[in-house]
Computed example of a mutant assay.
Amino acid sequence: MDHGHFQELPDLAVRPLGGSVVYANDEAFAQRENLITAGPSRHDRDLFGPKGKVYDGWETRRRREPGHDEAIVRLGAPGIVHGLVVDTAWFTGNYPPEVSVEGLSIEGHPDVDELLAADGWLSLVPRSPVKGDTANEFAVAAGASGAGQRCTHVRLRIYPDGGVARLRVHGVALPDPALLDALGVFDLAALENGGVALDCSNRFYSSPNNLLLPGPTRSMGEGWETARRRDDGNDWIQVKLTGEASIRIAELDTSYNLHNAPGWASLRGRSGPDGEWVELLGRTPLRPDTRHRFTLADTPPVSEVRMDVYPDGGMARLRLYGSLTPAGRDELGRRWRDALPEPASAAERRDA
């Protein structure tokens, strides 16, 4: 699946998706939790606190002994990491000269001691130089030991110390098939369930993947909004679902979009990238600041959905509730098995 540049993929570590910075060996100057805050780092050059200059990032003290500093992030949605951004915004004389990032796949809810003792950490980004006040981009190379593995946690190491504003972990979520089996009916478009925006007509104000985040929006800025169209066309978004599925309910949410909601919307779907598009929901009027729910009766199984909005505007969330077909469940199981850590035995992979 060609996603173009990895930064078009969702950030699996961001706080709104459920990410958490569970450990840092030092946060003397600035808190570790800032690493996964949504949005860019902010800076007030005149703001100082009791511990020194206040930064919207994670900053450790100056090392006077050999070693390095590190932080561990639990991903909000475990999945396959395609690339990372180590953003040193505003850190100019105090950024780390080098960084590395590793990934770990561990089930359950491990505590910090278990994470520190785990021996399954694999390289996503080898020790590499970075620049200050820069969004340093690292694609996960095909030869990296952690490439293609489902990660539940990532570990950022900085050499020897310093400040990092944001850590972005871009990839595609890979949910546990057993959990989805237990749910039965779930949101097939949700990022945490493996949904992802494949493409859209316009990203002027925000990413289309915002539509697939968990929970309701708290403002207009937390959804997907396009620029105003000055032609006769319309905007659209194409979403890959968890797998081939039968959709039962579609929710098109325009919450907080009071004067810029689309006037109408429609849904089409297809099974596979070469399948024929079929109508799921005809062109339907939308209201501002409203959660619209539609029952989709007698629609065929699909693995991709395209939502067209007419002519443009802002949407808060897109929910597509349904259940996987047997073929969709088998395909998800195959991807799950292929992404298990290599140390797993053949029996463990078969059982999974």
Rank of each mutant, 00 (worst) to 15 (best):
G4Y: 03
P216W: 08
Y256R: 12
V85S: 07
P326I: 04
P288S: 12
V172P: 00
I106R: 14
L252Q: 03
R228T: 12
E225H: 06
D56P: 00
L318G: 00
L267W: 08
D11F: 06
I36L: 10
R150A: 06
N210Q: 11
I249E: 15
R283T: 06
V169H: 10
N234S: 14
A139C: 06
A13I: 08
D111G: 05
S219Y: 09
R166E: 11
P110Y: 07
A117M: 01
F204C: 06
P208L: 03
T217P: 03
R229M: 04
R32Q: 13
V101L: 15
D181W: 04
S219R: 07
D113E: 15
Y159C: 04
A189G: 08
V21P: 03
R350H: 13
S323D: 14
E192V: 12
G243R: 10
D113G: 10
D87S: 03
F29I: 13
A135E: 15
F294H: 15
R150V: 02
E251Q: 15
V101T: 05
P160A: 12
T325P: 02
G146T: 10
A118T: 05
S123W: 06
A24H: 10
P288C: 05
M220F: 11
E225F: 07
P110W: 09
V169T: 09
